[in-house]
């Protein structure tokens, strides 16, 4: 029973966080200089007409009621209109969220499938050749990952693999000009091309994703890698590991137990990284011309597009608190010691 209560409290706290975050965002966005009504109508329209639009947009009311109005609409799925291209922000978000989520999810998959095993292997004791090689790789990666900012790494990869070697497509978005866009079903390009049965476009989508996903995984996976490695070293030298050997557990079982113990704190870091990836995607999407949330954010900030900024920042922040809540639940599931 107390476990349900804990989960309930955590979810209630999540709701409070979401409200606080969207409100702070709202206040922040309203502080951006410029009059949205004037901006949307242009400099030639009369002051009376602007005033009328201000009323319509409820800009003359106190900020709390403006926020409540926004929240009410947001709950109905209406995030407002972009004054820049007069389109629905909701539609724009729906088109762009899958692009960014696909990048983030693929990057996290690479982190989990490549970097975490590398961390586990390089943390093993022993003087074998293989162990020494893994330790070298781990050391080199730890050094490099700290040195290369994401957009710099992206540009260098383009220079090498596109401009010079021409092995991979250049920064032209998710598909090349010659590919036909698949009909949008899920918004995830890998799934949509497969659903459309267009294997040529599917292959093309993969080649376009290689570099951005690599950059995100390489740069943002480093903290996960370092945490997993140091935790793995700790749990391999813990008493329960020695004891596991003493009672005759198989070596694989001993390693798995150590890895599970190392995973619990690593998941906390991984959660933080997922939220960092949202910010990181901004730069990497710019570099590779992916029409995702990142580019959307940059454009809307540069053009002071209130509704869009509000939508993006709220989305990012809400995602963050959601991921943190998920991390807490996972941590509870993995480690009985934090359950109470």
């Amino acid at each position: 029973m107390s476990r349900f209560l804990t989960i309930f409290y955590r979810l209630a706290y999540l709701a409070v966080q979401v409200i606080a975050i969207t409100f702070i965002t709202f206040v922040m966005v309203r502080m951006i200089p410029g009059d949205p009504a004037r901006l949307s109508l242009g400099p030639l329209v009369s002051d009376e007409a602007v005033e009328a639009v201000r009323d319509e947009m409820r800009l003359n009311e106190p900020i709390i009621s403006q926020y409540l109005y926004w929240a009410q609409n947001a709950l109905k799925g209406d995030l407002g209109q972009s004054w820049v291209n007069n389109s629905s922000v909701t539609d724009e978000m729906i088109a762009r969220i899958p692009v960014t989520l696909e990048l983030i999810m693929l990057a996290m998959t690479v982190v989990v499938l490549v970097l975490v095993p590398l961390a586990i292997l390089s943390a093993q004791e022993g003087k074998g050749l293989l162990q020494r090689i893994f330790r070298r790789i781990a050391f080199g990666y730890g050094m490099l990952a700290g040195a290369l900012p994401d957009f710099v790494l992206g540009l260098l990869l383009i220079l090498l693999f596109y401009t010079h070697l021409d092995w991979l497509p250049g920064p032209e978005g998710r598909l090349s000009f010659l590919d036909t866009e698949p009909p949008v079903v899920t918004g995830f390009i890998l799934i949509d091309t497969l659903l459309a049965g267009d294997f040529k476009a599917f292959r093309s989508a993969i080649t376009h994703l290689v570099m951005p996903v690599f950059v995100l995984a390489f740069v943002y996976g480093a903290p996960v890698f370092k945490m997993m490695r140091s935790q793995m070293e700790t749990s391999l030298s813990a008493e329960y590991t020695t004891y596991g050997r003493v009672v005759g557990l198989k070596p694989l079982k001993v390693s798995l137990r150590a890895a599970r113990a190392a995973a619990a704190p690593t998941i906390v870091i991984a959660g933080v990284i997922v939220t960092f990836l949202l910010g990181g995607a901004v730069l990497v999407e710019s570099v590779f011309n992916f029409a995702g949330l990142g580019q959307f954010a940059v454009q809307s900030i540069v053009s002071a597009d209130y509704a869009s900024i509000q939508a993006f920042v709220s989305f990012a922040a809400v995602m963050t608190v959601l991921v943190y809540a998920l991390v807490d639940f996972l941590h509870w599931a993995l480690d009985p010691r934090v359950r109470n």
Binding site: I21, M31, F276, L278, V282, A297, V298, I301, V313, A317
Partner: peptide
């Protein structure tokens, strides 16, 4: 909870 980079961008915009 705000992504650092986006947060900084909004602050500069403000």
């Amino acid at each position: 909870a705000f992504p650092v980079f986006v947060f900084a961008m909004v602050l500069v915009a403000i």
